[in-house]
């Protein structure tokens, strides 16, 4: 019986990952002056990227991605287009949930729309969750940790060598997504790498084609 308990405990311990330790600033003034990295949109934007999909380090395909994201309403619209101009996927997410307008193979699976919208929000919109920790990682990176309503963790980190990164962990601490903003100057969305830890790991390399702020319509009262 003891052996079984030990075995189960061992499996449980190994299945749980540990989030990187964040050391909070020692002084109160240090805590107050600490600024969290924020690579997120400050206003509604339309962005067009070329996207290379990679598996095992090899480029598999290249497509064009269009994103329309509003940080105030947290609404997102997106589309995937081939170089030839064919729309493979188009969806929007708002207060009423996700609406898929078009989904051709291989983008027509049940979870694809939700995962894609989640990834877009992770890249472009500030976390909705509560700030749980802020400080520095062991490598000196500035780090802020948020916990989402579903229990998942989001770390936003910044250092001189690796730039700004976003990492999303499961509630048990397993890394699921790693976003790296690879542009050191100019538009932070110029070059973005998304690494996904799934059954088959993959990565997306996004290169900005165009970015355009979108004016939000205002209505005057008569």
């Amino acid at each position: 019986m003891k052996k079984i308990f030990f075995l189960i405990s061992t499996i449980f311990l190994f299945s749980c990952q540990t989030l990187p330790l964040i050391n909070s600033p020692a002084s109160l003034s240090g805590q107050k002056s600490f600024t969290c990295p924020s690579p997120f949109l400050k206003q509604k934007y339309r962005l067009v990227h070329s996207i290379e999909t990679r598996m095992a380090g090899n480029t598999q395909s290249a497509i064009i991605g269009v994103t329309l994201a509003d940080p105030f309403t947290r609404s997102v619209s997106c589309a995937i287009i081939t170089a030839e101009g064919m729309t493979l996927f188009e969806a929007e997410s708002g207060p009423r949930g996700i609406k898929v307008r078009r989904a051709l193979p291989p983008f027509d699976s049940a979870d694809f729309a939700k995962n894609m919208i989640d990834d877009i929000k992770l890249i472009f919109l500030a976390p909705e969750g509560k700030l749980q920790a802020k400080g520095r990682l062991a490598d000196g990176s500035t780090a802020c940790r948020y916990q989402e309503n579903n229990g998942e963790w989001i770390d936003v980190t910044e250092n001189k060598s690796e730039g700004t990164q976003i990492k999303r962990y499961t509630s048990s601490g397993a890394l699921k997504r790693q976003i790296s903003f690879m542009s050191t100057a100019g538009n932070i969305y110029q070059r973005i790498e998304l690494r996904a830890k799934e059954t088959f790991d993959y990565s997306l390399l996004m290169t900005l084609i165009e970015a355009q702020p979108v004016k939000t319509k205002t209505f005057k009262r008569k």
Partner: peptide, 15 residues
């Protein structure tokens, strides 16, 4: 010259 127009784009995407 290819011009892709769709609702999400404010102006055509030109290839």
């Amino acid at each position: 010259i290819q011009k892709k127009s769709m609702k999400i784009l404010s102006k055509p995407l030109i290839s």
